[in-house]
Each structure stands twice: as C-alpha cells, then as structure tokens.
Amino acid sequence: MNSNQSWVVVADEPAVTGLVTTARELAPQVVAVVVGSREAADAAARAADRVVWLGEPGQVPVEAYAAAVADVVAAAAPAAVVGATSPAARALLGAVAARLGAPVLSNVQQVEAAADGAVVTHAVLGGLVEHRTGVAGVPVLAVDAGAVPADGPAVTVEEAPATPFAGVTVTQVRPRERTGGDLGSARTVVAIGRGLRAEADLAIVTALTEALGGELACSRPLAEGVDWVSKDRYIGISGQRVSPDLYLAIGISGQLQHMVGVRGAGTVVAINSDKDAPVFAQCDYGIVGDLYDVVPALTAALGGGA
C-alpha cells in the first residue's frame, strides 16, 4: 500500500474541495482521477497534487468508466479513496470498492488516519445512530463534494484516455430548467410537505418565502411523486442537506429521513395541523394549526403578500 497517497474519484463535477480536504486528512499527497469534462479536470487541478484525466467521455455516461477507474486506482494501491455522494460518483466508488473488497462508508463526519487504515466517524441507518468505525485496510468514503476550487495555481492535468464499457450510448439529453436560487447557501429555507393539497396552493408558500427572503424547498413526496417542486429542492437523506439560519417545515410530518437534512439548521419552525406530528419534538418553535390559515397570516405579519 502506498501510504503517502490518497485518491479522489471525480465524476464530472468541478466541486471537489470537500473530497480533497477529506483525502488530505488520510495521506499527505492527493491524486484525483477525473471522469468527464476538461472543466472538471481543470477544477481538480486547482485542489489536488496530481490529476489523471481519463479523457472526454463523448456520448457515454460517466458510469461507463467505472471499471477503468477501478483499474487506475487499484494499480496505485492508495491509502484511501474518496468520492462524492452523487449516483455517478457512487458508481465509480462502487467499482473501486468491489475491486478492493472494501465497503463504501457514507455520511462521514470525521476521519483520522490510523496505522492500518483509518478511524471514521459516520452516521448509519439513515442518521439514526453514529458509529466510530476502525477500518483495517483501505477506507473508501462517500462525502459531500464541497465547492468548486477558487481560481489560482493548478497542477498539470495528465491525460490518460481510458476505454469505457462498450455498448452504451447516450442518445438524447433533455436539460432541466433550474428554478430558484442556491439552497446550500440560503440563510432562510421554507419547506413544504404533503400537507399541501394542490399544486396551485404553492402560491401561499412562495408568498411566505418571498416575505422572508428565503428559498423554497420541500419534502420528498412533493418532488418525487407529485412533481410540484423540482427534484433538486427536496431536503433529506436522499436529497439536499441544508444548514440555514432559519428553516420552516410546513405540512411536513418530521420523518427521520427528512429531518436528517436539517440537523445543521439554526432555528427550526414547524407548522402542522396534527399536534402529535413528530416534527414538534424536533423544532424550536411550532404552530399547531392549518397551514392554509397560518401561512397567509404569517406572511401578512411579516409585511408581505396580499
């Protein structure tokens, strides 16, 4: 094992600072292997000590390079491997993990290098509990990607064109319009859940969001299921994790899988018609009431809306 080196696998995303920071805690030198656009390779070159770019992917998905990435990483015998939590990154990490016979650890809070591997503090069972786990061997970690590295000095991108899986072609891409501002950096987030009865009623929630100068978000069923809010705006274990100063959960019951996404929030406010809803045990302020009354009243009290 090359205990001086940890590797970062990049799945066509320029946001890599979180990956590189974690990798650096486990070995002094960080090497990035990048699948995808030159832009992603150039971004990695501003954060890592060495960048290996597998070349323009053309009409194949990032995942088609999974075995190629596993080959490159396994040949280097690194001390640790770090990637992001996106589905594409998990496909690359999965191939590496399979090759190394090592589990992928997720929801990582803290890592420390150890003589025979690492000690990793991570949430398990969807955030129900936390474990400190000794890893004897190569830790393979899925962590938050972080930000795009700032402009500045960069190492040379080494081009090492690789062969993807044969037989897979992307035949069509229909881009999605991104709506709203950045959730990750929003100071106030207003989230709506299944307590909303109709898509048209979203108007009362957006009026409150505007009155607070916040960003709109939702629980999973409103994005995947009824598709009232765009899919990149649901909060929780499978969606976005946010840490605004103020989080409002409106018509949201407060299931573990949702609330894990707001553990870092400053103040949590809940509005729910059911006084026994689990969200009331996990908020700073709660209002028991019908959101159709409470939300417009709150908007008015804040000096907004009609």
């Binding site: 090592a102 509990v129 474990h131 400190r132 890893v135 553990r263």
Partner: peptide
Amino acid sequence: APGTALTTLATARPSQG
C-alpha cells in the same frame, strides 16, 4: 473474503443540537 475489515469502536445517539 473481504479485503478490508471494519470494527465498531463506539456507538452514539446523534446530538440533536
């Protein structure tokens, strides 16, 4: 056989803040 062994060193309830 697995190439990497895991040992649970400690368990905790998440601090809810």
